[in-house]
């Protein structure tokens, strides 16, 4: 049973912590798919989303998840709030706490912001992405999707391709998948990977060879190329990125037959993946979205009920 106040990251979580969330998500998925099964189990609780970095799908996914649980959920509207008047994060958190909020869901451009907030509020804090650190619910929905399709994690080879050093998705997956017994291969341009990332887990391998990562993989996960990272001189242009690090039908051939194709979306079509791959019958990119709501319902229920 998940027994923590907050969900800040997957680093340090036990295998059972993660599995209990995934088990709960399995029940929640039925409620996502079938409205007649939904029950307002959290109707007495409220949640707030604080998005210091823009997001549409993660925020919407949390909002839908809360609503399916009967929760009252409001968005702080960071851009129009007292944050713009220079309010410190801790003070914002304490104000919301004083209003009786049960769950705070935050995305922040700075690493560790969720941890800082969690330390100063009674409410449960869910990290919706902090800086270059973690995005635990994304990794949980990825793992949920993998479990659904592959039945388990032992010995699975998961290739994560792209901008590794700036990706909180890659990091959370590396922590979580390692804990569950999968082998994780992280690959990308030499400027966007780091050998130090092998320390993320006991079975994490870092390589600049997409082929090595994809060979005999059970799961291939693309990451969004963030054009704003280009300022950091990571690669010449999208054309060259697609040529050497894009996932094509040809690359896919090297993976195991039946390998899953995943992406946290939105996808830059023709850059990190070709349309052929995105729309492939093994692509589960749209199912990931459904599973995202289920996983977030599970997390909200487990944390919200404690408040």
């Amino acid at each position: 049973m998940y027994n923590h106040k907050d969900l800040l990251g997957l680093r340090g979580l036990m295998k059972d912590d993660i599995l209990s969330i995934l088990d709960n998500a399995r029940l929640m998925k039925k409620r996502v798919e079938n409205p007649s099964l939904r029950s307002p189990s959290l109707e007495r609780h409220s949640a707030v989303t604080l998005f210091y970095e823009c997001s549409t799908r993660t925020r919407m996914s949390f909002t839908m998840a809360a609503e399916y649980l009967g929760m009252r959920i409001n968005d702080l509207g960071v851009s129009a709030s007292s944050v713009q008047k220079g309010e410190r994060l801790i003070d914002t958190g304490k104000t919301l706490d004083a209003m009786g909020v049960s769950v705070m869901i935050m995305r922040h451009n700075l690493t560790g912001a969720a941890h800082l907030l969690a330390k100063h509020v009674r409410a449960a804090v869910i990290n919706g992405g902090d800086g270059c650190n973690e995005h635990p619910t994304q990794a949980l929905l990825d793992m949920f999707t993998i479990a659904e399709k592959k039945g388990g994690f032992d010995g699975l080879k998961v290739a994560i391709i792209g901008d590794i050093i700036h990706s909180r998705v890659a990091r959370s997956n590396a922590f979580g998948l390692s804990a569950l017994g999968a082998r994780v291969f992280l690959a990308g341009p030499p400027t966007l990977i780091s050998r130090h990332f092998e320390r993320l887990g006991p079975s994490v391998t870092v390589t600049d060879s997409v082929n090595e990562a994809v060979r005999d993989a059970d799961v291939i996960m693309g990451l969004r190329v963030q054009l704003e990272r280009q300022k950091a001189a990571a690669f010449p242009d999208l054309r060259e990125y697609a040529r050497f690090y894009g996932i094509t039908a040809e690359i896919l051939e090297m993976a195991k037959p039946g390998a899953l194709i995943m992406h946290p979306a939105p996808v830059n079509r023709g850059v990190e993946m070709t349309s052929e791959v995105i729309d492939h019958d093994r692509s589960v990119i749209n199912e990931q979205v459904t599973n995202g709501v289920a996983v977030r319902m599970a997390v909200l229920e487990m944390l919200g009920a404690r408040g």
Partner: peptide, 11 residues
């Protein structure tokens, strides 16, 4: 100010 097409030229 910006990397050349090093990979494409290598190829």
């Amino acid at each position: 100010t910006w990397l050349s097409n090093i990979g494409m030229m290598a190829e």
